[in-house]
């Protein structure tokens, strides 16, 4: 599958996520050099080290906290190379109920999924645009397609991210930089480990990773990883608000 020259490099924001690891694996085995980020440094080092041993590609790791926006500029400037691809995967599902009672939880959901992403992706986009080269792939969620009573804190943060990515795509287009939005649907990861997800609607992290790599090569704009989710979300969007508000979704 070596479609690319060996020396391309990618920045994987959220390299400790199950989806992030799968993306890193796809890219490393294709010869990309990688920089993975996360907060749990011990885990991050082990992931990077393992991937470097298995793939033979260079895999570095860096501490990065999405909510600590004051550090983002220094973080980005300190990278030895400007990557050609940036995949933004960090996210926080949080607890809806808790978030309704404790601002700290709601704020964390908004900051990780939205403001943190905007803060770092602005920096990345400006750099890519200045070079006239690069791809940004943001992982949003179908939860952002419509606000449901059971998880609209997360959903609204992802909705904002989706809108941001859509606008960013349009802005960057004029510089030759591509932006893709990925909407995975359910994925069996650490985030959803304790939930009972229907198997037919749930993707494996590897499937999402494949969709992300494909989006890079094909310059896709918006990708639903499992096509059935596009259908589901189209139907959900069609339900009139009068009815929708009564549904316990």
């Amino acid at each position: 599958m070596s479609k690319i020259p060996a020396n391309k490099s990618a920045l994987i924001l959220g390299g400790t996520s199950d989806i992030g690891m799968a993306v890193a694996e796809c890219l490393a085995f294709e010869g990309w050099s990688l920089i993975l980020t996360g907060r749990n440094e011990d885990y991050l080092h082990r992931i990077a080290n393992d991937l470097q041993i298995r793939s033979g590609s260079s895999v570095q790791s860096r501490y990065f906290d999405a909510t600590d926006t004051g550090t983002h500029k220094t973080f980005f400037q300190s990278l030895e190379i400007v990557p050609e691809l940036c995949v933004c995967l960090f996210g926080y599902l949080g607890e809806q109920e808790k978030g309704m009672k404790q601002w700290r939880e709601a704020e964390q959901i908004i900051q990780v999924n939205y403001t943190g992403a905007v803060s770092i992706l602005n920096l990345v986009a400006n750099e890519f645009n200045a070079r006239g080269l690069g791809t940004i792939i943001g992982v949003s969620s179908v939860a952002g397609d419509r606000g449901r009573g059971s998880n609209f804190l997360y959903g609204s943060a992802k909705a904002a991210l989706t809108t941001y990515l859509s606008g960013l795509r349009s802005r960057c287009y004029h510089y030759g930089v591509h932006v893709a939005t990925i909407k995975p649907g359910f994925v069996a990861t650490r985030m959803t480990e304790s939930l009972d997800l229907p198997a037919s609607l749930t993707a494996a992290p590897g499937q999402v990773a494949k969709a992300i790599c494909r989006a890079y090569y094909k310059r896709n704009n918006v990708v639903y990883v499992l096509p059935v989710w596009k259908l589901i979300m189209t139907c959900i969007a069609l339900i009139p608000e009068q009815l929708f508000k009564r549904l316990k979704l």
Binding site: N49, D50, I53
Partner: peptide
């Protein structure tokens, strides 16, 4: 299952 990293070789 998820504790599966190669540490050195």
């Amino acid at each position: 299952h998820y504790f599966n990293k190669i540490l050195s070789f």
